[in-house]
Design a protein around this nucleic acid. Structure first.
Lengths: 197, 197
DNA sequence: GTCTATAGCCTGATAGAC
DNA sequence: GTCTATCAGGCTATAGAC
């Protein structure tokens, strides 16, 4: 049986692990660091999770669902331009609210997606393929301009995630100002012009 | 005095180090891996470089110049639309030709730019600030649409580097096809529409 | 200049008291 | 359930022969 304390400790550990893995990558992270952030001892971490690998896996397993939700929410029966802009806005909002998750994902993919390959070539690919069909229909209906659906989706990922993943760089260039200041308006304009039929 | 053999070995080591650091990050990389790729023994690596850190630093020191060249090459006296599109094309070309350098850079920034902060807030910031002024002049001259110069530059970075940094993800989604197939045309259209006055 | 051998540290994981 | 103590392996870096 799982007690309330157990659930709370598991959550605290995963929270700390997200902090450290997203900032240091899998190999860069140490159990000592995670234990320090979580306020627990190192062996206690391993009482709740079998291994460092298991903590990382637990985070990644949750992550893909969170990551796909905004794309999944695109409504095939809605207006093309509105649906794509709304998707972009949801994705930008995620970069704002979940920057650590974005960096955890980026770290993984950057290093060749060794622990995410199955999910990317499975669930994610299927979803992208499906939504590409939807986008092509919007194009043939004249609702949006004729752009490659895959590159359109990649461009939304690139532009929105960049603000979370390259936060350190943008901050240094903009004297520490919030990297996302003005991002909403800029991306709104960009995709509005791109999709104009 | 530096012999030809010494220069050749240093180059071989840096080449191997770029391979491994860009794929595994600094802490993920091991001297054994680098030695294996370089075809030299581990102690021999440390005959040419004082430490693992020194190899990494040597790569980063070279990197920023390479990375800034395309932005630096933007001509203030040229036509705004042409200059920005040419910059985007050069940057995309770099993602094609130097994907490892792109990932080395991404790994660093993703983890908070601990070893690049000075160069980013120095050389890079100055260059970006200067080119932002140039872009504002192009806007006031009516050569391009009124967009935020900083976000414009960030969008070029995000969109072009994405193809190198997230190569693994795109490949898995596109059944192993070259991630850059069709990227040139797509980005050309995107920035052409965005900059249309 | 290049190697083998190894020192010495750090890290993930376990043992065992409480 | 949580801790202290510790093991075993992997890592960077050095010593020393050739």
């Amino acid at each position: 049986m799982t007690t309330r304390i157990q659930r709370r400790n598991r959550r605290r550990i995963l929270e700390a692990a997200l902090d450290v893995f997203s900032a240091q990558g899998f190999r860069g992270a140490t159990l000592d660091q995670i234990a320090g952030v979580a306020g627990l001892s190192k062996p206690n971490l391993l009482y709740y999770f079998d291994s460092k690998e298991a903590m990382h896996r637990a985070l990644l397993d949750d992550l893909l669902d969170i990551w796909l939700a905004p794309l999944r929410a695109m409504n095939p029966d809605g207006n093309g331009r509105e649906e794509i802009l709304a998707y972009m806005r949801r994705k930008l909002q995620m970069s704002r609210e979940l920057p650590r998750e974005s960096r955890l994902f980026a770290n993984e993919v950057l290093q060749g997606a060794p622990r995410l390959a199955d999910q990317i070539s499975g669930d994610l690919k299927r979803l992208v393929d499906d939504q590409a069909v939807v986008i092509r229909r919007w194009i043939s209906m004249g609702q949006i301009a004729a752009v490659d659906p895959y590159h359109l989706i990649f461009s939304i990922w690139a532009l929105t995630q960049h603000y979370a993943d390259f936060d350190a760089q943008i901050r240094l260039i903009r004297d520490g100002a919030d990297p996302m200041d003005g991002a909403d308006g800029f991306l709104e304009t960009l995709f509005d012009k791109l999709l104009q039929p």
